[in-house]
Simulated assay, not measured.
Amino acid sequence: MTLAIDSPEVFGPDTTSGHQLLPLPVTRLRAAKPAYTTRHVDLAAATQLLTGVEPHVGGFVLATVSEVGHHTKIELPDGRRASLFPGDEVVVAYGHRYAPDQFEAIMPSDLGACELVAAGGVAARVLSAHGRMRPATSLQPVGLLTDSAGRRMGLHLGVPAGVAPPRPEDRPLTIAVVGASMNAGKTTTAAYLARGLRGAGLQVGAAKTTGTGAGGDVWQLTDAGAYPVYDFTLSGLPSTYQASA
Rank of each mutant, 00 (worst) to 15 (best):
R198V: 10
L202D: 03
A118D: 15
V57L: 06
V218E: 01
V142N: 07
T15Y: 04
A184V: 11
G216P: 00
P165L: 04
P141W: 03
V26E: 15
A164H: 10
Q20A: 13
A214I: 04
R171G: 05
Y98M: 11
L197R: 02
T15A: 08
T16S: 11
T146V: 11
T38M: 05
L43P: 07
L234Q: 13
M182L: 12
A161F: 06
V91K: 02
G112Y: 11
H19D: 03
T240C: 01
L127K: 09
A206P: 03
S109Q: 13
G199S: 08
G52Y: 12
T47Y: 12
Q140A: 15
H156G: 07
F60S: 02
T146M: 08
T15N: 04
L173S: 08
Q140V: 15
P135G: 02
A164F: 07
C114H: 07
V65D: 00
A4L: 14
T174W: 00
C114S: 06
T64D: 13
A136C: 02
D6L: 09
A113G: 03
R80W: 07
G112T: 03
M1N: 12
Q203F: 05
P141I: 05
G199W: 03
S7A: 15
P23S: 09
L139D: 00
A176I: 05
G52W: 09
L3A: 05
D14E: 13
E9V: 14
T47D: 10
I5S: 13
L173Y: 12
G95V: 10
G87F: 10
Q102N: 00
H70Y: 12
L139K: 00
S7E: 05
E115H: 13
A4F: 11
L84H: 09
L173E: 15
A99I: 09
V57Y: 03
T27Y: 03
T38A: 05
P25H: 06
D101Q: 02
N183E: 12
H70A: 13
E54V: 14
L21Y: 14
K33G: 07
A113L: 03
F85K: 15
T27R: 09
K208Q: 02
Q140T: 13
R132C: 00
S181W: 02
G216R: 07
D78T: 12
A207Q: 04
P13E: 10
H156K: 15
M133L: 10
L157C: 09
D42Q: 13
